[in-house]
């Protein structure tokens, strides 16, 4: 009796294990499907995908690396220019975003001052309102500042990311205040306490926020599309999107370019999965 029940129990455990593994496997495969198809297509003439769509048929006869050579040669290396633009914008956005949002988050998390709760509510309000609502007035503003078609025009409205402020507030709240007190006793200024004592303790938070801000910047499309007007100034997502014109014959570059815009990130992700996952989910309530 006993063994029979155990056996049926372990049998049902096995079926549930097989079922869960299969189900998750399907979802995991589905998650990777787009990369697989785009990677395959990137070795074929782009016109083929535009005309026939993506198909299950794999005809290996016309595979070549021609599309990848276009990354360097097409319109005097325009693609590399987009890469550079994306990278410059990412660098400014991440560095300024980290600097400002960590300072503000630290102030909210570690100091008691009048208006602190009010400021925190403002942070939550900014997080709650989709930025897309503000694209028109922000465009007019950037126009007035003469920042249209410039890196700063892309970055400036987002130099103090509210998500970052929220995250750093949650993080610093968990750090010991005694360290600040002993720093004061040792004659450290409040600024010294931040930069010499607290900031090093916040390094994991900086790591997570770097990934979140970098991914947001690298993949952002709507705002850069509004600000950046000429093709030499465009970033990767909008540059690639602009290749999809009906009269263009740049479809070859489109495919290899799309693959190369995500491949480096996927490699970096596979090397530091833990920090990526904690970074991309850093904005959540749990922190």
């Amino acid at each position: 009796m006993q063994t029979k029940r155990k056996m049926s129990q372990s049998a049902s455990k096995l079926t549930s294990s097989i079922f869960s593994t299969l189900l998750l496997g399907v979802f995991a495969l589905w998650a990777l499907t787009p990369f697989f198809f785009l990677l395959i297509s990137s070795f074929k003439p782009g016109q083929e995908m535009i005309r026939n769509g993506l198909q299950f048929k794999f005809d290996f006869s016309n595979y070549s690396l021609v599309n990848y050579a276009l990354l360097y040669t097409e319109r005097e290396g325009l693609y590399l220019r987009w890469y550079l633009n994306s990278f410059i914008i990412l660098a400014i956005q991440v560095v300024s975003g980290l600097f400002f949002s960590s300072l503000v988050g630290y102030a909210l998390g570690k100091y008691r001052f009048k208006g602190r709760n009010f400021l925190f509510i403002l942070v939550l309000v900014v997080m709650m309102i989709p930025i897309e609502i503000l694209i028109l007035p922000l465009y007019k503003q950037m126009d007035a500042f003469r920042l249209i078609n410039s890196y700063w025009g892309v970055v400036l409205p987002f130099v103090v990311p509210a998500t970052g402020v929220f995250f750093f507030r949650q993080y610093t709240m968990g750090l010991p205040s005694e360290l600040m007190e002993s720093g004061r006793l040792d004659g450290c200024t409040e600024y010294g306490i931040y930069f010499r004592i607290m900031m090093p303790l916040m390094l994991p938070a900086f790591g997570a926020m770097t990934i979140l801000l970098a991914m947001g910047s690298w993949n952002s499309m709507v705002w850069p599309m509004i600000v950046l007007r000429t093709s030499e100034m465009q970033t990767l997502p909008i540059g690639l999107q602009s290749l999809l014109t009906p009269y263009g014959n740049n479809y070859d570059l489109l495919l290899s370019g799309a693959v190369m815009s995500v491949l480096p990130i996927m490699v970096i992700f596979l090397l530091n999965q833990k920090s990526f996952i904690s970074g991309m989910t850093a904005g959540s309530i749990k922190g």
Binding site: A31, P34, M215, N219, P237, V262, I265, M266, F269, M280
Partner: peptide, 8 residues
């Protein structure tokens, strides 16, 4: 499962 979140 996480990889799609990384793509544009």
């Amino acid at each position: 499962l996480f990889i799609p979140a990384l793509t544009s």
